[in-house]
Design a protein around this nucleic acid. Structure first.
Length: 290
DNA sequence: GCGAGTTACCGGTGGC
DNA sequence: TGCCACCGGTAACTC
């Protein structure tokens, strides 16, 4: 499950290997083609498979950057800029290899969905087991509304004030804190794992209503989120089930998690509780978090 | 036009 | 061994 720190790791690894290179040929999987024929948008969004392949052919990757949990591949063809937006969903992974056979994990090998053959040799490959990821080819970011509504990067100095302001809006003030901090229009890139960790660190119950938290506590919570995201980036991300970096390696943050996926509270040894908030599983310590 | 709520997208995993 | 419910980030759709 790649979250912001995992995506950051992917981007940092992709940058030196892919920036400046030109795509010679693109090939989408049969699954994508078949799904499109069925009227579905499997991985490739708002484009016909043929048109998507053609659009990216002869495109030069100028810059790769992360925004929330999205990867932006900025590109250029005949001096016109474009961008390929990638989201890894639950199980997406990028690989930079000399040949597709180099992907040695069977389940990633089996679910290769986009193969980019580079003009100077080698391949950039997108694999996605559960196909929750997306590839979206745009002329500019503004062409896709959800991307324009995203909160600032959590490391941006205005991000905390932005969070405070958003949290006071009518549509958020009566919601649970966990739902609000996981909303990309409030804080960007805070998924279930890191929301769970930050709430535990601040001893806040995930179901507590936003308007029952003081501004001081909200600021402390925001800092806790930033801290846990930074820690995880430094640890190479959390490898929960299927995350791999572009070399197929796992991260180590999962070993440092205090609450996500835990049966016992590491502070007071009470059995943890679980409830569904905003449709997502939430783990917390009923003794420590109020 | 906007917001709230619902559905779609999936295969690996683990429990029985 | 085999079946089946469960899981989840985001967009798109409906109301």
């Amino acid at each position: 499950m790649p979250e912001l720190p995992e995506v950051e790791g992917v981007v940092q690894a992709l940058k030196p290997k892919m920036e400046g290179r030109t795509i010679q040929q693109v090939q989408l999987s049969e699954v994508i083609r078949f799904s499109f024929g069925e009227g579905k948008q499997c991985i490739v969004k708002q484009a016909e498979p043929d048109a998507f392949e053609m659009s990216l052919t002869q495109m030069t990757i100028t810059k790769i950057e992360r925004r929330a949990k999205y990867i932006f591949f900025h590109m250029r063809k005949e001096n016109v800029p474009y961008v390929l937006v990638s989201h890894l969903g639950m199980t997406g992974a990028w690989f930079v290899v000399n040949s597709p056979e180099e992907i040695n994990e069977a389940k990633f090998q089996k679910h290769i969905h986009a193969t980019f053959k580079m003009a100077d040799g080698g391949f950039l490959i997108y694999s996605d087991i559960r196909r929750f990821g997306e590839l979206r080819f745009l002329e500019k970011i503004e062409d896709h509304t959800p991307l324009t509504k995203m909160a600032p990067e959590p490391f941006d100095e205005i991000a905390c004030d932005y969070f405070i302001a958003q949290s006071k809006l009518p549509k958020y003030e009566n919601k649970s804190v966990k739902e609000v901090i996981m909303d990309g229009q409030v804080i960007s890139g805070c998924g279930n794992i890191y929301a769970t960790e930050a709430l535990f660190a601040q001893k806040i119950h995930p179901a507590r209503k936003m308007n029952r938290i003081s501004e001081k506590r909200k600021r402390a919570l925001f800092e806790a989120i930033v801290t846990v995201l930074r820690q995880s980036i430094n640890a190479g991300g959390s490898t929960i089930s299927d995350y791999r970096n572009i070399n197929g390696e796992a991260g180590s943050m999962q070993n440092r998690l205090q609450m996500y996926g835990k049966k016992m509270c590491p502070v007071c040894d009470t059995a943890t509780s679980q409830m569904t908030i905003g449709g997502r599983t939430s783990v917390f310590c009923p003794n420590c978090q109020h």
